[in-house]
Write a protein that binds this DNA or RNA. Sequence first.
RNA 1: GGCGCUAUCGUCUAAGGGUUAGGACGAAGCCCUCUCAAGGCUUAAAUACGGGUUCGAAUCCCGUUAGCGCUACCA
Length: 478
Amino acid sequence: MVRVRFAPSPTGYLHIGSPRTFIFNWLFARRQKGTMILRIDDTDVERNTQASLDSIFDGLNWLDLGWDEFYRQSDRLDLYTKAAWAIHAAGHAYRDFTPMSAAADDRAELGAWLCNPGMRELSPEESDRRVAAGEPFVLRFRVPRNTGRRVEFKDLVYGEQSKSCDDIEDFALLRSNGAPTYHHASCVDDVDLRISHVVRGQDHLSNTFKHILIFEAMGVEAPRFAHLPLLIAPDGAKLSKRKHGPVVSVTTYRDAGFLPHAYVNFLCLLGWNPKDDREKMSRQDLIDAFSFEGVNRSNAVVNFSENDPIDPKALWLNSQHLYAMSHDELAAALQPVFEAAGYAADPAKTRQVTPLIQERIKTLNDAPAAADFFFLDQLAPYDPAELIPQKGDAAMAEKALRVARQVLETANFTHDALDAALRAAATGIGVKAGQMFQPIRVAVCGRKNAPPLFETLEVVGRDACLKRLDQAVEKLNN
RNA sequence: GGCGCUAUCGUCUAAGGGUUAGGACGAAGCCCUCUCAAGGCUUAAAUACGGGUUCGAAUCCCGUUAGCGCUACCA
């Protein structure tokens, strides 16, 4: 039975790497018909913040993937304490009474980073005596040193890993305030929650040797491990809010009008590939194709810049998903966007507009600007010069507009009828179709670039069209 | 410093001994076309460096360089 967990700690905020780790866990769980667990690793009381916890939920909820079980380490502190003393009782840990402040300096200077001198060898009696005297201490793991022992495991992504115990320091299990460290709490929970696969960032690859030692000391089999390459900034540095700004936040993409699934799809392609040329993939496609075989080992750059926080490929992928949506589906997604823009958009109108702008937007947020003339009573001001067609002059523009007005007064407002009538009108006054259409387009839309003319006129409607044609002629004469 | 990991077009990546080193984004050009898009076609663009092994290396080995990670009573 596959059981995986995503275990963020609520310090800082949810940056783009976290949802990716979540997604890979989720994909593996779904692929294996297993269980996805969300666990909040909040053992560092000093650094936890509610804002950070909120941003984790905001981000994950937006992804719309969900999870099956939820835990919080702060609810389970007893578990870690008991487990730590069991490890101690088994002889795999010892008390270290070295004062906190002294430790860092001494270690650096003496090069004694493996353990604090003397503490490892303290007799049980001496150790107990100092506890009784009220001395604070850290509970440290006793790494089997000078045994020639190497810790080994096979990572599902990085392959065979091995490290000598002589290169592993006596890391802490319990802090002097009694709280468990990350390493300890994480391992204890992984055992308690029967985690089968630990899927996490590559920054934990080196830590895994310690974790395996802990599992051994608890007398249990270690889960399998799959480490994921990291997401980094274009300058090669790891993503940080301080250095790279809000671009590294999940909310950047959400607020830019991305479809949650497009974002998921994009993140999947950073460090993983389906072993074929597919890029745009549905949720089910991703589940079906996912395996750790397809995960590569080098860090992936998220391609953002100061003036453009969005990775161009993410934008393209979003557009591809947007274009693939049904008109009804897209219209439903666009409705709140139009409302937020202050447009008088009833769902029926939105539904009419949707097919005309679908291929002209890359994000949902592009829609209001692309569709303004469908909703605005009064067009935004435009340069009358835009009314003048290619190889034409103001006179030609005015003539085209006047003729168009006549035609539109009586024409059937359907695509085919408008097409036929306006083309005939162009021939009638001896101008090319394009020279006829361009002034009309600018008059009705307020700009040169817009959706196809006849469909547009149809949706804008006769009254508004006539009004705007009149206004255009007026503009031309001023 | 010690230990660990990584290294293919600008970016995401394929190719795990034999390919003109493939695809995608982005860029440029062309086609389509009532504009803009969308779509189609084309072009430019990469195996970090140096040694091996081999008939043959992007691929295996060693070294160098660079980047990242761990080296906390952070996670």
